[in-house]
Computed example of a mutant assay.
Amino acid sequence: MCMSTVHDDAIVIDGLVIAKWDRELFEDMRKGGLTAASCTVSVWEGFQDTVNNIGAMNRLIDDNSDLVLKVRSTADIAAAKANGKTGVMMSFQNAHAFEDQLSYVQAFKDLGVGIVQMCYNTQNLVGTGCYERDGGLSGFGHEVVAEMNRVGVLCDLSHVGPKTSEEVILSSKKPVTYSHCLPNGLKEHPRNKGDDELKFIADHGGFVGVTMFTPFMKNGINSTIQDYVEAIEYILNIVGEDAIGIGTDFTQGHGHDFFEWLTHDKGYARRLTQFGKIVNPRGIQTLGEFPNLTQALLDHGFSEPLTRKIMGENWVRVLKDVWLEN
């Protein structure tokens, strides 16, 4: 089977996109053959502003229903594939929107939010992010993890500190994920994960999505799609072929002000990091170039079945389990 047929036929899932949501972006998703994508609708926002973001996303999905559909289940992912659309999986990059109310976990699940990152870079009521001293999972955090397990929301640990991450992994009765990360073994960075952390999450049934955000990659803004495949292979050799997928962290469409908002605590307070120039790897600089990744994996020597797992089948299996469909 040729590459184009493999890509066209495969389930293709991006486990983290934080782009500027509009029709142009959805058209690029379709050009890239994305079956579904985890789309960030909350980072620093509280409850009300997050509800507003979800309302805006609902309207955008309705207005572009020829291109996209809303995902609440893996059956919706299958329906997106069958109908030539891209499924929008709404997700948070911070549990801040839960505020101090456990009931909000189910409220947001009912609104269609199936993936929530426990912290975004800094401390919240649940635990600690990767850019400050890590105090671990709070008592309230343990309750939030249990409630996410109960209603079927995936715990994401990509921007979470190592101690909090370890305690979420041990606390959760369901698989958890680093939805978009890279290995410290290729570049030391607070956002990257050590070999021991990658092995620990995999040994406890967890899942790793590999990002291509170049500030965290070995060759920075000079990175290529081959560097990304190298990172995938590095993590694959630690976690195994059933615990790995894609989580690009694509930010296309956003400008300077957006990155300033992301890189300050709470969106406005102290500066946490500075990314510098944002350039995606040569060969896959937009979501529309996703077929190039399938080609690169096959060219690297990955088998067709393994390539299909990495491109999306593994994500579907994990989501089916966490979303209580098994």
Rank of each mutant, 00 (worst) to 15 (best):
I284T: 03
I225A: 06
L298S: 09
F258E: 01
T224K: 08
I244N: 01
M212Y: 13
K277E: 15
T286W: 07
F216E: 06
L262I: 12
G255A: 11
I278V: 12
F213T: 06
F200C: 02
G283D: 07
T263D: 10
D257T: 07
D242R: 12
F250G: 05
E233A: 12
K199W: 04
L186P: 00
K218S: 04
N219M: 06
L287D: 14
G220T: 04
K218N: 10
G301L: 01
I235Y: 08
L272C: 03
G206N: 01
D249V: 00
K218H: 12
E289P: 00
L293H: 00
I221L: 15
H189K: 03
D227M: 11
F207V: 02
F200E: 02
G185I: 00
L287V: 14
F213H: 11
G194S: 15
F200K: 09
D257L: 10
N219V: 04
P281M: 00
V239H: 10
L298D: 15
D257A: 03
S223E: 08
Q274D: 13
L262F: 02
E197H: 10
H204C: 10
T294G: 14
A296S: 10
I238S: 09
T211H: 14
D203C: 09
K187A: 05
I201P: 05
V208K: 02
I225E: 11
G276T: 01
F200P: 07
E197D: 12
E188T: 12
P291W: 09
R270K: 13
H204G: 04
N219S: 06
D257K: 09
L298Q: 06
N219C: 05
K277Q: 15
V210E: 05
Q295Y: 15
G276V: 04
Q295M: 11
A202F: 07
G247M: 02
G301P: 07
E241C: 08
L287Q: 15
F200Y: 08
D257S: 13
G301M: 00
V210Q: 08
I244L: 11
N222K: 14
A296Q: 11
D196V: 12
T294Y: 07
T251G: 13
T286L: 07
L186G: 02
N222I: 14
